[in-house]
């Protein structure tokens, strides 16, 4: 039951990303291009996602444990350290170079192209390097 729910959550995530056209790197780049022909769509994607997710957060506060698990497995750290800042900066730079963050890149595997596969292979390589040595 738990695994089916996780699968459905993944399905919804891929559905939402594609409906929102986050799977179009060019569209993502035109959101980041504030001085050019700016496309504010992605701000509304964030707004819609935050509004619904926040309802979940509010409901979760009144629950002792999740419906299908023994405990809430959530990050609790509040420390702004160098790793957070450098990591976010590196990620943002890579995001701005091509227009892919991890979710849309992986969801787009449904319609894989050679440039996408190159990006994903490099992304997995980067994750592996960071897990191993950083």
């Amino acid at each position: 039951m738990k695994n089916i729910t996780i699968f459905i959550a993944g399905l919804l995530f891929g559905l939402g990303l594609t409906v929102a056209q986050m799977t179009s790197p060019e569209k993502v780049l035109s959101f980041l291009d504030i001085s050019g022909n700016w496309d504010p769509s992605l701000a509304l994607v964030m707004l819609g996602a935050l509004a619904v997710s926040a309802i979940g957060v509010m409901l979760s506060k009144s629950m002792k444990k999740p419906l299908l698990a023994e405990l809430f497995n959530l990050p609790t750290s509040q420390i702004i350290d160098r790793k957070l800042i450098i990591g976010a900066a590196l990620f943002g730079t890579g995001w701005g170079l091509v227009g892919y963050c991890p979710g849309p890149a992986i969801a787009s595997l449904a319609y894989a192209s050679q440039p996408l596969l190159i990006f994903i292979a490099a992304m997995f390589g980067g994750m592996f390097i960071a897990k191993r040595w950083l």
Partner: peptide, 29 residues
């Protein structure tokens, strides 16, 4: 801003939020 797609952006975003809500409330992740 001729490439602005407010409806699909809000709808897609809400579905992404629903995914996060489901994962949080059912699995706690």
């Amino acid at each position: 801003m001729e490439n602005f797609t407010p409806t699909s952006a809000l709808l897609g975003g809400a579905i992404i939020g629903l995914s996060a809500l489901v994962l949080l409330l059912f699995v706690g992740r």
